[in-house]
Design a protein around this nucleic acid. Structure first.
Lengths: 236, 236
DNA sequence: CGAGGGTTTGAAGTGCATCAAATAGTGTGG
DNA sequence: CCACACTATTTGATGCACTTCAAACCCTCG
């Protein structure tokens, strides 16, 4: 995958004028990152932002007493660190590679310059930020109103293609431990909640493989405790 | 308070070119809203956005089974409904007046038109969105990592002037019931947590009045369980 | 004064966390 | 290919924080 390919997986760079896209592509460095490596730290000085080409990256913050809160876990097509533009060039969270990843890195200064010059690009970044904001609101609502098994159900639904009909079979995208903290629970709770979900919805779970006879089986269970109805995820 | 006055309480319109500000001011309608009235509903078609001149407005969402999650409770200087621009002109939450309010209302179409034309205005909106996004991240972290009394302490700290030295005396800005759900807890829990906070920090509470000998008294207690150190709030 | 909501208090329940230990998986060197 | 070391996951027992349900108290406002 070259710079072009990775950039255009992100909404921000899709459908951009060829010249502008080329400018970004030429300023891009594509690099492989091993699982476990740290990309940047909360409150570090920021010069680069990233587009995920493949793999998974965890965004998190730590308190003084060593506890960590996960902000998000993202994969291909997502932006990392771009918000530092609006925060005096400091990252707003730490980022760690949790599954071997290929990342495109670009200078923040270039993004800053171009969004000020190109309203179309600015609107795209607005859309991306807005989408993330909405996701955060959903997340907050879920923590308030959904039970642990419902949150897992919701997480699984977001892995599905909402237009798919009939039986679904899917794999958990990363460690159960990580999914647990992504959903704001402990590994033990996750394990038990998954069992409860299995009992209460009749879906089939074997290790990291999930099978269900239909999406409705889950959405009925999880989405009743949410203000938006399925599919609630970002499309496109 | 006329349109100009209200608009310039918001970061979005402050330091704007006089001509542009005038265009917005002429399109503004200022209206008084009584406590209890609904401003708009989640997923309603949106044509207007608002700037709060005075009073308090609750942003919330409801699930099918009647539970509600509070997104935010805002006062003077805050924007309402402006994000509908990026959501196909639909509001992303409901809004209810919780303390008699004066609101300036403006057409979304005008905002849309002007941010596409004026990069400076666009950058201001970016800053406002970014600030809100950060606040949401903090909120999520707090729900994860802080206890109920710590969250109340954090809430109180955000009502203080961080540069103030010595004894502080302040009033709760709205109903305890509402503060409770703003912080994601039940009224009973709030009441008990407030007592616990009193015991554990030696601050003085009488009805809606809070007194403490210094800000440190609280920040030491609440901010130890948070990734950002006091003052964590948005300045300016 | 009395009605009605806001607030507090008490008693009991629920869900998730914690601590501890067993089990399953994975990768390593022999 | 096996045994070991190490990590991920599961299970059990117990504890704590917040919720729920119920009732009292308080405050305000007609």
């Amino acid at each position: 995958m070259d710079a072009h390919d990775i950039l255009t997986t992100s909404y921000l760079f899709r459908d951009l004028d060829t010249e502008l896209l080329d400018i970004f592509a030429r300023a891009t460095v594509v690099k492989r990152h091993a699982k476990g490596s740290l990309l940047f730290l909360h409150q570090d000085e920021a010069t680069q932002f990233y587009v995920v080409g493949s793999g998974w990256v965890k965004l998190f913050r730590e308190t003084l007493d060593g506890k960590e809160a996960i902000v998000d876990v993202v994969n291909a097509g997502h932006l990392l660190g771009e918000t530092a533009i609006f925060e005096q060039n400091h990252y707003t969270s730490s980022a760690e590679i949790v599954e071997d990843a290929v990342l495109a890195s670009l200078p923040l200064s270039l993004l800053q310059e171009k969004i000020e010059a190109d309203p179309k690009l600015a609107m795209k970044l607005f859309t991306a930020m807005s989408r993330f904001r909405r996701q955060q609101e959903d997340e907050l609502e879920h923590r308030d109103l959904q039970t642990a098994p419902q949150r897992i159900g919701c997480f699984l639904l977001r892995l599905c293609d909402p237009n798919h009909n009939g039986p679904v079979r899917l794999n958990l995208p990363y460690d159960k431990m990580l999914i647990a903290s992504r959903l704001g629970m402990k590994p033990e709770t996750f394990s038990r909640a998954l069992n409860r979900l299995k009992e209460e919805t009749q879906i089939h779970i074997d290790g990291a493989t999930i099978e269900m006879s239909s999406i409705q089986q889950l959405s009925h269970y999880s989405c009743s405790a949410c203000s938006s109805s399925y599919p609630c995820q970002d499309l496109g």
